[in-house]
Amino acid sequence: MHKKLNQSFLDLVSYLNDGQYHDGNSLGDALGVSRTAIWKMIKKLETYDIEVESIKGKGYQLKNPLMLLDSSRIASQLTCKSIKLDVFESINSTNQYLKDNNSQTAIHVCTAEQQTHGRGRLARKWHSPFGQNIYLSLAYRFKKDMSELMALSIITSLAIRKTLANYDFLSEPMIKWPNDIYYANKKISGNLIEIQAESNSDTRAIIGVGINVNMCNANQDQIDQNWTSMQLNLGHAIDRTELCITLINQLIDSLQYFEHAGDASFIEQWAQYDYLYNHNISLIAFDKKINGIARGINDMGHLLIEDTNHQIKSYAAGDASLLRKRI
């Protein structure tokens, strides 16, 4: 199930974002809707766990700013204009939506305020609270065979890292093989790549991206690993629309470069931001546990691990974690 964002709902949130109290009649007059319609939209916000303070005689006030995605602004500032863009209020999964809607458009982007069944690698649930983070998927058609897309998660991770580097973090965001972005030893972003084979040796890649943006609270049962967000580190709320624009433009720029020039330059870039490099790590791959020292990646984007016999072996997939501090 997916629901498009309603303009009246967006306008209501925009009014409430000024930090002041607004009564139902004034809001109804401003939006051209009834007081009952305002009440229903307030109740909708509350179902999304958005805190709205209501005081008789004063009206409604958002306890914290809520920066919803502005689809018109996103569309107007994309450098590539031949893009199909869908922005939803709520959706089961942005990746699943693009898989189910095989648009003939070369690039199709779907983003949402909330995912009800968001997922990451290894079928892990991706916590997706309403209006807090980036939940975005991009479908891109390649004139390449599936075997030529082995390094796509490397390219995607570098594009996300470059997007985050536009902000004033105290240090560089790093990339944890194969698809996570870490900041201050905590996960801030991840991506999920799904490939569909098509006729004439074409392939359609669906690239799902999650970024923790303005999320400041989550229970252990919602996220079972160390995490952080942009707001927690930068000290202020982030304009998610601006971030979304930058991310889409950077992803497309990287994918177009890769399509024409290959992945060699991306493999070289990886070394600068390799979170695991020279660390003792443990890799779980196909129910097998491998311990060793991370030695970067090879030209196919596979993880290199040096074992106790000082032999270096490559691994195409798996779940890596740090064991001790850098040696």
Rank of each mutant, 00 (worst) to 15 (best):
G24A: 15
L78C: 08
L10V: 04
Q225N: 10
G28N: 03
R240S: 00
M67R: 12
Y183S: 02
W227T: 00
P173I: 05
Y167P: 03
Y275Q: 06
H302E: 15
H108A: 05
N101Y: 05
I134L: 09
S14Y: 07
Q272W: 09
D180T: 05
N185V: 02
C244E: 11
A75L: 12
S76K: 15
N226I: 03
N166Q: 14
D49T: 09
D145R: 11
N17V: 01
R326N: 13
D11R: 08
Q7W: 08
N6M: 00
T246V: 11
L85D: 08
S229W: 05
Q269F: 07
T111M: 10
V13H: 03
N309M: 09
L164Y: 01
K144R: 14
L27E: 07
E242G: 09
Q222I: 08
A165W: 05
S254L: 05
E242P: 00
T36G: 11
F169E: 02
E113Q: 13
V33E: 11
M41T: 03
N17M: 03
M150F: 10
L68N: 01
I107E: 00
K43W: 01
H310S: 02
N92F: 09
M174K: 06
D18G: 08
N200A: 09
H236C: 09
C110S: 12
L62V: 02
Q77V: 00
E306Y: 05
L45M: 05
P129F: 07
I195T: 05
S137C: 05
H279S: 08
K40T: 06
E113R: 06
R161P: 03
W227K: 04
N280C: 11
S8N: 14
A271I: 11
N166K: 14
L243H: 00
L5T: 02
P178V: 12
K186Q: 10
Y135K: 08
L243D: 01
D11N: 10
V87E: 08
I290F: 08
S26C: 02
Y140T: 03
N278L: 13
Y182I: 12
R161D: 06
E194Q: 09
G208A: 03
A123Q: 14
N233R: 07
I83D: 10
K186W: 07
I211T: 00
I160G: 00
D224G: 05
L122M: 12
N95V: 04
K144H: 15
L276T: 04
G59C: 03
K143M: 11
L255F: 08
T47I: 08
G118Y: 05
S321Q: 14
D168Y: 10
K63V: 03
Q311E: 14
K3H: 13
I134C: 04
S229N: 06
L232M: 12
C244P: 00
S282D: 10
R73D: 11
T111E: 06
L158N: 01
N200M: 10
I267F: 07
F266N: 03
F130D: 10
T111D: 04
L138I: 05
Y135F: 15
N92I: 04
N166G: 11
I50P: 01
T228D: 13
Y97Q: 04
R324Y: 13
N92T: 14
I206W: 03
D224P: 00
I223P: 05
I245G: 01
G120R: 08
K313W: 07
L232Y: 00
G318W: 00
T94V: 04
L247I: 01
K325N: 14
A75E: 15
L98T: 02
